[in-house]
Design a protein around this nucleic acid. Structure first.
Length: 554
RNA sequence: GCGCCAGUAGCUCAGCUGGAUAGAGCAACGGACUUCUAAUCCGUAGGCCGGGGGUUCGAAUCCUCCCUGGCGCGCCA
C-alpha cells in the first residue's frame, strides 16, 4: 500500500543522508512512524522522524527535516514535502499516486484491500459457544457478530482462519436441562410432579418436552437417571439446531462445532492432565488435583479434579485449549462475555506454564449489551423466562441493521441496544447511510448505461479530468482502505472498519450533492464514473467483510 | 478488600504505535430538491477529554493516587 511505499522512501532518504554525511548519528528507527494529520492542509501523511532523531543528532528537528526533505523532494510519489511546526515533515502525494490508486482498486475489485500481513498464520477464532440449554439471546448476538466479522477481517489480512463453536454439552447445566424437560414431559402425561427448583422455567422447555414425546413417547419404562439422560440428549441436539439456524439467519456459519463431551469420550481430558502432571505443574491437596497457576500470574491455584473424583469445568477447558494447539494453530482467539474476565489469568497461566508464548491465546472480552425499549431498560433473566431471543431481534430489526449496530462500538465499551431505535428504517440508523451511498452509485451506473456512456477502461481513463477537491478527498479515502483493514485485523478491532465506511460514505454523499457525475462532457463523465465505481467497489468490499449487504436500490 | 472494563459536546460514541487548532452522528438553530435516489448535503452553536500529581520538546493517550458506573473474585458452569 501507499503508506508502505512512502515509509520505504523515507528510509532510503535517511540512509542517503548518512551516506552524504548530511547526518551522522547513523540511527535508523525500526519503524518510521507515519500518521494521518487531522488537518488536510498538512497533506496525506506526516512523520515525526526529525524530532525523534534530534537528540542523537544533536541538531534541531528542523535542521534534520531540511536535510531529509532535500532528498525526498525528488521522489515520484510526492508532489510536495513541507516542514511544519516543531519539525514535522508533511507529505502531499502526487497525482500519479492517485491515478494508480484508482487503477488498483478497479483492477483488484473484490480483492482490493486484502493483504498478506497475516502470512498464513493459522489462527482460530472461537466464539458464541453459548450453552446448548436454550435459544440465543440478544447478549450472545454481539459476541457472535464481532467474532464473525473479526474472522472475516483476519482472513482478508492473510491469516488462515478457522471459526469454531465450543459446545458445553458435558456439564451440570445439561443435566438441569434434562431434568427440566423430564418434568415438563411428565406434566404433559398428566402426572403431578414438582418442577426442579433450579430448572429452566422458560416456554421452550415445554416445547422440547412435547417434541420429545412425539418422537420417543413418554419414556415410561425408564428409570429416572436414564430418562434424564434421554431428555438431556434430545434437548441439547434440538437446541443446537435452533442455535445453528438462528446464526445462519444472522449470516454466521462455523467451520467446526466442537463437543466438550467428546473430550471425555476420547479420554483427551486425562491425556492433557497427564501432560500437565509430567511437567510438574500439578499437585494434590485435600484429595483434589490442583494446577499450580499461581506460578504464572494467577492469584490462586485452581482445582482440576475435585475431591469426589469429578472434573471441574476448568479441567475440560484446559484440555480443550491445549488440544487446540495440538491441532496446529499458531494463535487462538476466544471471544468471551466480559463477565468471564476473571477466568483469563488462569487460562493464560496454564498455557504459559506449558511453555506457549504469551500471545498464543488472545481473549476478546465483549462488554455487556444493555437492552432498551424506547429508552427504558428491558430486564432479562433466563430463569424467569423473560428474555428476548436473538432471532426475535433479527426478525424485528433486520440482519443488516443488527449486525451494523453490534459492530459500531469498540467491544470493550458497553453497548446500549434500543430495539425501537435500531428498528427505525430512517436516517437515525447509520447502516442505511452507508448502504445508500452504494445504492446511489448503482443508480448512476444505470443512468450512464441508459445514456450510452460506458465505464472507461484503464487506458481510456483520463485522470486530468478529476481535479475537484472532493474527488481527491475520495481517492485519498480509497487509498486508506487497506490500512484500515490491516489495522482492524492486527488490533482485533472490527469497529474500525465501520468508522472507515461511514467516512467513505460521507465523502461520497458530499461529492454527490455538490457535483454531478454525468455531465455534458463525456470525458468528464467517464472519469467520474471510473472514480465512483472505485468507491462502490470499496464500499461493497468493506460491507461484505462485515456481513452487511450492499443493495443496488433502496 | 482485590481485580477487569469504562468515564471525551445535552445524548450515543470515535480518537490508530504519545503529536500540530480534540472529531462524528443524534438533538437544537438556519439554509439547499424543475438537475444522476433529500434514507442526502451545507452552515451555526455546543468541551477544565471524571479530579489531583508525575514522566517530556509535546499527554485525551503513558505512570501514580483518588472519585463514579458496570462486571467479576466457588472443589459452579
Amino acid at each position: 500500500m501507499i503508506k508502505d511505499e512512502l515509509r520505504a522512501a523515507i528510509r532510503q532518504a535517511l540512509v542517503a543522508c548518512y551516506q552524504q554525511q548530511d547526518l551522522d548519528s547513523g540511527e535508523i528507527p525500526e519503524e518510521i512512524q507515519l500518521e494521518v494529520p487531522k488537518n488536510p492542509d498538512h497533506g496525506e501523511y506526516a512523520t515525526n522522524l526529525a524530532m525523534l532523531l534530534a537528540r542523537a543528532e544533536k541538531k534541531s528537528p528542523r535542521q534534520i527535516a531540511e536535510r531529509l526533505t532535500a532528498v525526498l523532494q525528488k521522489s515520484e510519489l510526492l508532489e510536495k514535502v513541507e516542514i511544519a511546526g516543531p519539525g514535522f515533515i508533511n507529505f502531499r502525494l502526487s497525482p500519479a499516486c492517485w491515478a494508480a490508486t484508482l487503477h488498483r482498486v478497479l483492477a483488484d475489485g473484490a480483492n482490493y484491500g486484502r493483504s498478506e500481513v497475516g502470512r498464513g498464520t493459522k489462527i482460530q477464532v472461537e466464539f458464541v459457544s453459548a450453552n446448548p440449554t436454550g435459544p440465543l439471546h440478544i447478549g450472545h448476538g454481539r459476541g457472535a457478530v464481532v467474532g464473525d466479522a473479526l474472522a472475516a477481517i483476519l482472513q482478508a489480512a492473510g491469516f488462515d482462519v478457522q471459526r469454531e463453536y465450543y459446545i458445553n454439552d458435558a456439564g451440570n447445566q445439561v443435566q438441569t436441562l434434562g431434568r427440566s424437560i423430564l418434568a415438563r414431559l411428565r406434566q404433559l402425561q398428566g402426572e403431578s410432579v414438582e418442577f426442579p427448583e433450579d430448572g429452566y422455567q422458560a416456554e421452550y422447555v415445554a416445547e422440547l418436552a412435547a417434541g420429545l414425546r412425539q418422537e420417543q413417547g413418554g419414556l415410561t419404562g425408564l428409570d429416572d437417571a436414564e430418562a434424564v439422560a434421554r431428555c438431556a440428549g434430545y434437548g441439547v441436539a434440538e437446541v443446537l439446531k435452533w442455535i445453528a439456524t438462528d446464526l445462519e439467519a444472522f449470516g454466521i456459519t462455523f467451520d467446526n462445532w466442537y463437543s466438550e463431551q467428546s473430550l471425555y469420550d476420547r479420554k483427551l481430558v486425562d491425556y492433557e492432565l497427564d501432560r500437565l502432571r509430567q511437567k510438574g505443574l500439578t499437585f494434590e491437596a485435600d484429595q483434589a488435583l490442583w494446577l499450580r497457576t499461581t506460578d504464572f500470574g494467577d492469584d490462586k491455584d485452581r482445582v482440576l479434579i475435585k475431591s469426589d473424583g469429578s472434573y471441574t469445568y476448568f479441567a475440560s477447558d484446559v484440555a480443550y485449549h491445549l488440544e487446540k494447539f495440538e491441532r496446529g494453530f499458531d494463535r487462538v482467539i476466544d471471544v468471551w462475555g466480559a463477565d468471564h474476565h476473571g477466568y483469563i489469568p488462569r487460562m493464560k497461566a496454564m498455557l504459559k506454564g506449558f511453555g506457549l508464548p504469551a500471545d498464543a491465546l488472545e481473549v476478546l472480552l465483549i462488554q455487556m449489551v444493555n437492552l432498551l425499549r424506547d429508552g427504558e431498560p428491558f430486564v432479562m433473566g433466563k430463569r424467569s423466562g423473560n428474555f428476548i431471543t436473538l432471532r426475535e431481534v433479527i426478525d424485528e430489526v433486520g440482519r443488516d441493521a443488527c449486525r451494523f449496530f453490534f459492530l459500531m462500538r469498540r467491544c470493550d465499551s458497553q453497548l446500549d441496544f434500543d430495539l425501537e431505535l435500531a428498528k427505525q428504517q430512517n436516517s437515525d440508523n447509520p447502516v442505511y447511510y452507508v448502504q445508500y451511498a452504494h445504492a446511489r452509485i448503482c443508480s448512476i451506473n444505470r443512468n450512464a448505461d441508459e445514456a450510452g456512456i460506458p465505464m472507461p477502461d484503464r487506458d481510456q481513463f483520463d485522470f486530468s479530468q478529476l481535479s475537484l477537491e472532493e474527488e481527491v478527498a475520495l481517492i485519498r479515502q480509497l487509498a486508506r482502505f487497506p490500512e484500515a483493514l490491516e489495522g482492524a485485523a492486527l488490533h482485533y478491532e472490527p469497529h474500525r472498519l465501520v468508522f472507515y465506511l461511514q467516512e467513505l460514505a460521507a465523502a461520497l454523499h458530499s461529492y454527490y450533492n455538490r457535483h454531478r457525475v454525468l455531465v455534458e462532457d463525456v470525458r468528464v463523465s467517464q472519469a467520474r464514473l471510473y472514480l465512483v465505481n472505485a468507491v462502490r467497489t470499496v464500499l461493497a468490499n468493506a460491507l461484505r467483510i462485515l456481513g452487511v449487504s450492499a443493495p443496488e436500490r433502496m
